[in-house]
């Protein structure tokens, strides 16, 4: 549900939240479509976030006070921007640490020599 990425979708489940938090931390404020495009560009098309996964997560983060929104006119339509709150910035640091620890653990499993060495 989170990603459409052919065979690897199950591998990326659960990573969407830290990915979005990282993007918002690096770029300040972003709108929904921009996030999907940026993830696609960074991963060279390997990951594609669906709208049905992106917006529910953004709503959840907004409700938890991790992100805040502001709406602006963009040409002939409204555009909603998302940015991290103060609590959101703290949460991002925690999420990044957890992500690193998780990747380290995976590395140990995938490459046991590193763990032994």
């Amino acid at each position: 549900m989170y990603f459409y990425s052919m065979k690897k979708s199950s591998l990326y489940k659960g990573c969407l939240e830290p990915i979005l938090l990282r993007l918002l931390k690096d770029h300040g404020r972003m709108y929904g479509y921009q996030m999907t495009q940026m993830v696609k560009d960074i991963t060279k098309g390997e990951l594609t976030i669906t709208e049905g996964a992106l917006y529910p997560l953004l709503h959840k983060l907004e409700e938890q006070g991790i992100v805040e929104t502001e709406t602006e006119m963009n040409g002939n339509r409204m555009r909603k921007y998302y940015s991290l709150t103060k609590a959101g910035k703290k949460q991002t640091s925690i999420a990044m640490e957890e992500m690193k620890a998780f990747m380290q653990s995976l590395e140990y499993i995938v490459n046991p020599k590193i763990a032994l060495g």
């Binding site: 709108y31 929904g32 479509y33 917006y55 409204m78 555009r79 909603k80």
Partner: peptide, 14 residues
Amino acid sequence: KEEVQDHLISFVEN
């Protein structure tokens, strides 16, 4: 609509 509409328009423009 204010978030979905912009998303769709951005998609079309892209």
